[in-house]
Design a protein around this nucleic acid. Structure first.
Lengths: 155, 155
DNA sequence: CTCGGTGCAAAGCTTTTGCATCCGC
DNA sequence: GCGGATGCAAAAGCTTTGCACCGAG
């Protein structure tokens, strides 16, 4: 297991509580998928997750991966990004700071950033539109001004 | 023609100039699609555009609609939104104010809003990451606090 | 023992592609 | 007339679904 043990214990507990509260079964596949996700850095898609699990000897199917990701989204342990019309990208979400993304329109690389001022915008919109904002997605599109798109990349 | 004639003249001129600069042909299908888009309000997907055109007697194919939308994105006359992993949503973009979206996680309705403070965030990120930000996408997800999700909807 | 969850493969949907035909320049 | 653009249909690619079997509670 290559995951941070302390963090992973809390994550397991969150998932455990979630499954119990929803009266869902604690199958080995669900734990396998959770562990694989939390041993990863950055973004990934369902296919690569499926391939990794198969390579490790876990007999999961794509359908189960999709199903489990849905559960993890629901309990806040994972986040889903739809950067384009192709594969959705996921990432672990527990104990990690909320962040947003910059995408280079040339090389399509994704960089992360944080800006607390987004909270102010959320608050204003919440008040104005009578809306409880749960989460958000901010993506900035543009070109790196350095040559060869040498900006720090996270995907 | 149900479009705003004055605005539409400018739009046609923009597309005309764009096609010439790229040495692309001015086909009737391209003008048909442009007109249909600018006679619409709010968001729409490729399929509904295709169906409308077919209903009006324009013999366009889906392939041409996809191809033309790509050109319109390139010259800034249309905008594309990937709200989910299904159909991409488009909307006209010339002479309309840049805006962002609020999506209700219950009823999936989309509301628009504007907040100038996003510009400040863009500026900071541009400077920090040496990135020329061309455009952005900010989506706030949450629930309407009123009953029946009675917030003003635009889709 | 029950029935929710899984694996597999097939189906579904949106978008892209190949190719013959058409028509703007 | 040349070569880009189109229409049609087939292909591609991601995700969902149906069904029989398995195993958690």
């Amino acid at each position: 297991m290559t995951v941070n043990a302390e963090l992973y214990d809390k994550v397991k507990q969150v998932f455990n509580t979630f499954l119990e509260s929803k009266k869902l079964r604690k199958t080995s596949e669900r734990w396998d998928i959770l562990e694989e996700i939390y041993s990863r850095e950055g973004h990934f898609d369902v296919e690569s997750l499926y391939q990794s699990l198969k390579a490790k000897g876990c007999a999961v199917s794509r359908a189960t991966v999709y199903n489990t990701m849905e559960l993890l989204l629901e309990c806040g342990l994972a986040q889903k990004h739809q950067f384009d019309q192709n594969q959705a990208q996921y990432e672990k979400a527990f104990g990690f700071r909320q962040h947003d993304h910059v995408i280079c329109t040339d090389c399509h690389r994704v960089t992360e950033f944080c800006d607390p001022r987004i909270q102010n915008i959320q608050k204003t919109v919440s008040d104005l539109l009578h809306f409880d904002v749960i989460h958000h997605s901010l993506i900035l599109y543009g070109n790196c001004t350095k040559k060869n798109c040498e900006h720090k990349t996270t995907t």
